[in-house]
Design a protein around this nucleic acid. Structure first.
Length: 210
DNA sequence: TTGAGGATTCTC
DNA sequence: AGAATCCTCAAA
């Protein structure tokens, strides 16, 4: 007796979208649980998430949502399990999974992933990448590799209303992820809210000290 | 109406 | 180390 398919047709059967409740927790709990999960688009692009950061709304001076809801961060204050996409530095997009409860403004930034499928499409989307490990080893790179821009802000990662989903293929998160300070922020620089898979070649590189 | 700053990336 | 490049939001 077949069980109800939790995911749309384009998602291979052995994968299943993460349920809404997965996201309805504090981002520091969700973040390490997202390691080794999959980000998948309906054109065949798929990658394994290997690096994430938590951003925690009014308790986190580094979060876009720290000072409350604005036009830019409105998605972060909505239902968990949706994609919050932001634009920065005049040219880069960042992708987050909204977490917690409505109104909290919390989420997890997807910082790096290991391409698994649709690699040709990712290479086409990222002409500057010379090696496969340059395709998605950073938040802007990951978004560019998957073609994520403002048009996907608010997409439902559970219901896959716009052809993008976060799923599991059964691989558990690492038992002992590397944890440390977040990258590229100027406030709350000591919060140890960045996690990544140990010794993984697709993790983003630590930038120079400013 | 203005302008400082930004959850970055790339090239030199 | 410096450039690229433009949106957002507070008003110093």
């Amino acid at each position: 007796m077949p069980h109800t398919l939790p995911s749309p047709d384009w998602l291979p059967a052995q994968w299943s979208a993460l349920p809404r409740d997965f996201y309805r927790r504090h981002p520091t709990v969700v973040a390490p649980q997202l390691l080794n999960k999959l980000i998948v688009r309906d054109d065949g692009r798929a990658a394994r998430i290997v690096e994430v950061e938590a951003y925690a709304g009014s308790e986190d001076p580094a979060a876009h949502s720290y000072r409350g809801q604005t036009a830019r961060n409105a998605t972060m204050f909505g239902e968990a399990g949706h994609l919050y996409v932001y634009f920065t530095y005049g040219m880069h997009w960042g992708s987050n999974a909204v977490c917690g409860e409505v109104g909290e403004g919390v989420g997890v930034l997807l910082r790096a992933a290991e391409p698994l499928a649709g690699v040709a499409a990712m290479q086409a989307a990222r002409p500057a990448a010379r090696r496969e490990r340059d395709l998605a080893s950073g938040p802007g790179k990951l978004s560019q590799a998957f073609g994520i821009t403002r048009e996907l802000d608010g997409a439902d990662l559970v219901g896959a209303d716009r052809g993008i989903v976060i799923a599991s293929d059964g691989t558990p998160p690492p038992a002992a992820p590397v944890v440390g300070p977040r990258i590229g922020i100027s406030r709350a620089v000591d919060f140890p809210w960045r996690w990544h898979v140990p010794d993984h070649p697709h993790v983003s590189v630590r930038p120079r000290r400013r």
